[in-house]
Design a protein around this nucleic acid. Sequence first.
DNA 1: GACTGTGAAGCCATTCACAGCT
DNA 2: AGCTGTGAATGGCTTCACAGTC
Lengths: 214, 214
Amino acid sequence: MKTLKIPEATIIRLSVYSRYLSQVDQKGVVTISSGEIAEGVGVSPAQVRKDLAYFGEFGTRGVGYNVKDLHRHIMKILGLNSEWPTIVVGAGNLGTALCMYRGFRERGFQIVAVFDNDPAKIGENINEVTVYGLDKLAEIVEKEDVKIGIIAVPADYAQEVANQLVDAGVNAILNFAPKVINVPDGVELRNVDLTVNLEILTFNLGTQKRNSQP
Amino acid sequence: MKTLKIPEATIIRLSVYSRYLSQVDQKGVVTISSGEIAEGVGVSPAQVRKDLAYFGEFGTRGVGYNVKDLHRHIMKILGLNSEWPTIVVGAGNLGTALCMYRGFRERGFQIVAVFDNDPAKIGENINEVTVYGLDKLAEIVEKEDVKIGIIAVPADYAQEVANQLVDAGVNAILNFAPKVINVPDGVELRNVDLTVNLEILTFNLGTQKRNSQP
DNA sequence: GACTGTGAAGCCATTCACAGCT
DNA sequence: AGCTGTGAATGGCTTCACAGTC
């Protein structure tokens, strides 16, 4: 099978393109060029074309891309043509915020349950999502056919929770705990470290000062 | 001045190394090799050495690195040897979660104020941080010497808020709104898009299935 | 004339492999 | 003997430039 490897950077950009296209579509625009997309999201036109070319020929030479078609294609590529039942582990501040975050549902990620070990929280509702004890994890993952788990617990519990998610049958994990965790082959893992991003800013502020006389 | 360009990936890893080193330090370990760091954070030993080599010679050949020294050096490189007063704009779920998030304060990012336009929220306290109207932005940025602003408002307001932050004198912006925003040269900008990360997972789940017969 | 799709070139980051120090 | 620091080699992503299509 001809599966040339796709750069992760390309996937990130496709995700950005798709959001931009849905904005443009809502304005009623029918056709768009790689240059206009590039302008709208801050990359080069060649980059846009190259990214799309990994997956097929979606445009018309001399004309551009049909906005609706291209948007639909990208959503399909990203696997967003169907719903993804998702769970959050950790009903603290971050976990609660994630449950309430609208952006997830808008893109097809429906949070079907939250898990926490604090008895005071179990049984409560966060934005119509019920908090369960971790002992219910496997049961709900199976019943709701959950493939994606989000870890929003303190760093010290992250690995343990990851293990439980894997055992329960989850295939993909988004980890918000600032700790490196290990998962078996075949389980997808991504880490979002909120402080890393602030630290890149402070690093850049430091070098900026250093380079400020041209 | 000899300022060879540092890859951003290196900065991200330095941030991860520093957290790992503080864990190791707390266990009382005095010396560590590039191989052990690599093992602990999931990269190659050569990568660790290369990353550090951009900034100087911190190790001892034949021995390794002194944990405390290396940690201190990396914190200095990242600009984390002093406190960074920080503000959050948007007192919704995400903004509230960010204010309550302990990880920020642990690394020296102190959130000194939150801003929102909702009169019902103004004057309230979130985790000892007061919510102000946006009209107080410039005043507080100046008074508290704030360099970093975090945007946690809906996508449609992100650019407007970014402009106000820049006008108020903020040098660095962390944007959580799923929208491309523009800032003038000299202002550092990073975007954290929570849904992008989920979408990379779903993309990978899709290709995984496709490649599953070896 | 305008814009896509794509091989080739250029550029940047990672890995290799070994000299140099303790 | 063990481990760092680093030039050289590799691999991968981005940009260039142009042939192909409408």
